[in-house]
Design a protein around this nucleic acid. Structure first.
Lengths: 217, 217
DNA sequence: AATTATTTTTAGATTTGTCTAAAATAAGAA
DNA sequence: TTCTTATTTTAGACAAATCTAAAAATAATT
């Protein structure tokens, strides 16, 4: 069993692993709101527990055991997010902090029953995939909206930025999960995208487009 | 804001206050699975935060502020228990440990939405009253089953013992919340109670009867 | 390759909550 | 009242997670 803090480190290392491999001490420190020295201490502890592979000055990677632990926390986080949105009418920009706490509740029965209660959702309110209890993810076929060309069509199925500010902005524009969009034009000057959303013309910045995930269909 | 540990102390002190007033150090130590010395330390801390009134060697009482905090934790605990039983199909003897963790999640929005989602329940799965957000309890008119006389009738509306062993025992006997019972005889020899439950005769020990709460009607 | 800058680690201190062992106080019995 | 017992508190130590400041290693630059 891991402590609350250890679980948080594992989760952050898991997420950062998707960007850089191995993960640097400073990157963890930044994400976890702490100092590099503290990270080094914790990494040593996790290394002794065989949850991470650690080589001094070279950063860390998760061991198989550490990865499974991390994925389980991600699973819990995302299931709770679905609960908050689907059952308690939270907005998609309100769920993160609460799920951050709920993900540490220790009870397999609870999480399996929650999964069932929510009807085994495959994605969370931001379109992120929810692993099953064995740690397996369903295949996702996302494309960043910013990569689409004129005439391309698709459905919004996820976002890659979870800040409240960004999510509220999308909400205001009507760019929520499940909506169909068609690209009218990609402006060469600034990379902004002209698109059609429910017969309405819309222009979004390249910055925004980069964080909207589309499934072509 | 209080720490997880502080919250637990406040909750225990609150519950013990119903038995003895003020609450003794050793009583807290026993309930919280720790040593008297640790309790003294924590009590001093809570006293400095004005959550308890503390006189050396004389035990503690909750201040108004401490009491409100404690009641809020009890509220959260009981609402989560209702959720687990009503929505996730937990048995009434399975909910305590998980609720013990869930009660510490910090989010007023969460708890108000949960309350609404559960349709503002007045009692938890053991018949214990759920305070409203201001800390007010609905009036309860319980009588211990062991206090009833021959011919008395009523509905089981609560239990005053929450161990899994006891609850499973009741479950097996069919003595669950909402069931109507009629007293046939109180055996003088051992205080055991003969009763009628859905046209079935049943004999329960005085020990069991003491922990079943009845609303006469 | 030598120097500078950045990143990471060590060493030692701090905070929270806990502990043991000993001292102080309160309560009960003779 | 005095002795004995039980309860509570103090003093000092410990583990977990953090911090600052300084040292060490790595990376970047000239």
């Amino acid at each position: 069993m891991q402590s609350y803090t250890e679980e948080n480190y594992l989760k952050i290392i898991y997420h950062l692993s998707e960007i850089s491999h191995p993960v640097q001490t400073n990157a963890i420190a930044e994400r976890i709101q702490t100092k590099a020295a503290s990270v080094t201490d914790m990494i040593k502890k996790l290394s002794e527990k065989e949850l991470v592979n650690y080589v001094k000055y070279q950063g860390v990677t998760l061991t198989e055991k550490g990865k499974l632990t991390a994925i389980n926390i991600v699973r819990k986080h995302r299931l709770w997010e679905v609960f908050l949105v689907d059952k308690l009418n939270f907005k998609w920009d309100q769920v993160h902090e609460v799920a951050e706490e709920l993900e540490h509740i220790q009870s397999n029965l609870l999480i399996e029953r929650l999964d069932e209660f929510l009807d085994f959702p495959k994605v969370d309110p931001h379109g992120d995939p929810i692993p099953d209890k064995h740690g397996n993810f369903a295949e996702m076929t996302f494309v960043k909206l910013s990569k689409l060309k004129d005439g391309d069509q698709g459905t919004i199925t996820g976002v890659s930025e979870h800040s409240s500010a960004f999510l509220k902005h999308l909400e205001k524009l009507g760019l929520t999960l499940g909506k169909r969009v068609e690209i009218i034009d990609v402006v060469e000057f600034d990379g902004s995208v002209e698109l059609l959303l429910e017969h309405e013309k819309l222009n979004i910045s390249r910055e925004v487009a980069k964080h909207i995930l589309i499934t072509k269909n």
